[in-house]
Design a protein around this nucleic acid. Structure first.
Lengths: 221, 221
DNA sequence: TAAATTATGTTATATTCTTAACAAAGGAAC
DNA sequence: GTTCCTTTGTTAAGAATATAACATAATTTA
């Protein structure tokens, strides 16, 4: 497989779809799916087969003309592209319900993403362990980030604490932030910040519901 | 404002951005922001001003040439487009950490989205109340959906129960589903199903981190 | 009062992304 | 062994989207 990711810019939507493909493939029963065609995969995600082939074509080397895709190769290739071929360590800041939900999310570790730290400033929570990870005071973030080579920080704090938490993570040397608080957090250019506003998803659903309810439009003339 | 949503198809990305605009605007301090320009709003979301004006233009009637936008009008208009101008009721199925996190999310009710039911099949959870909402057995879903005119169901169950839950919601008459389980759920065409795979967001972050780490490409010749 | 400045709405252009079309290559049927 | 069918990689066309350009309108400044 060529390593052409750096050449031309890959569309954002292609990356999102690659992640979906990987998610879908990893859920398949291993026995029944040794191989899969673009047509089959497309059907599962409600997409056109050409879209999938085109997405793969940005990188090249996934399959061979005539053959169907080998699920194992596909998974390996996607993991490599998405940077999931080597282990990455992450921490969660804010151990409320959302933080605990994320800490318990099994699918992350399947992707090679290991939770190595939980942080909060509530003394009641500090000291408890969730899935063998102890909850620490946020003061200890820099130390753990250094010791455990943490690449990602997940912000699951209340809105008021979000930006402060981001600043702390950045000064501790973290390069990637996944923010679940309702406010947008910002940082220097070289820090990758992904704001995951749950409201946006719900508003989109609301819009689509409203559209669906509308009767078929009768032309004015 | 014209009611032109039904005329031409609005791009998905436009809807996502409108939701972002509303989210951003609703977080602004009311005192300082009576009015806002497309330039100012664009800066906050790291977007081009033209993009915002074009998005608004799909609907029309937001502002007036020469004037800046009135924040109040903007919010009202966006809410109307997104179907948030009237109250909508929703229920959450699965009262684990994620379900409780969603149930406690204050920003939803600001959008006119009211939580009217929590459901689980764990007898230990049934009967407890979260923010004045009692947890009920999933058998009671149809009754509550009918009584409370529920339009959206949020699936926060484990993967194994997701599709069954979706089927139950659909048969109870729910038209919109927001699925947080890792598996994709499906249903009839007329049901709006939004699969929110958290892994996808994390994989995207992983990809972007990998890209950022790469040194600037040196041309081969 | 007129010119300059700063807005938005709208139209036109440029770009990106998606879809279709087709060639090359393997497997199955005969 | 040959033909037909299926499948992928690749290129080309088409559609959708984002950006720029410009006209119009209000405010500010001289």
């Amino acid at each position: 497989m060529k390593d052409t990711q750096e050449k031309k810019k890959i569309p954002q939507m292609t990356i999102t779809r690659l992640a979906q493909y990987l998610n879908c493939l990893s859920l398949l029963p291993k026995e029944h799916y040794i191989e899969i065609s673009s047509k089959e995969l497309a059907a599962k995600i409600e997409l056109k087969p050409t879209q999938i082939r085109q997405d793969f074509h940005h990188f090249g080397g996934f399959g061979q003309a005539g053959y169907r895709y080998k699920v194992k190769d596909l998974i390996a290739g996607l993991e490599r592209i998405l940077g999931l071929d080597r282990q990455q360590n992450m921490i969660v800041i804010g151990v409320g319900h959302l933080g605990q939900a994320l800490a318990n999310y099994r699918n992350f570790e399947k992707l090679g993403l290991r939770l190595v730290g939980l942080f909060d400033l509530n003394p009641r929570l500090i000291g408890i362990t969730i899935r063998d990870v102890r909850v620490r005071d946020i003061d200890e973030i820099p130390q753990i980030v250094y010791q455990e080579d943490v690449s990602m920080g997940i912000i699951a704090t209340p809105a008021e604490a979000a930006q402060k938490t981001a600043d702390l993570l950045i000064s501790a040397g973290i390069k990637g932030i996944w923010n679940f608080s309702p406010v947008m957090v910002t940082g220097p250019q070289d820090i990758i910040i992904q704001n995951e506003h749950l409201s946006v998803g719900l508003m989109t659903l609301s819009y689509r519901l409203k559209q669906a309810k509308k009767p078929v439009l009768i032309p004015e003339h």
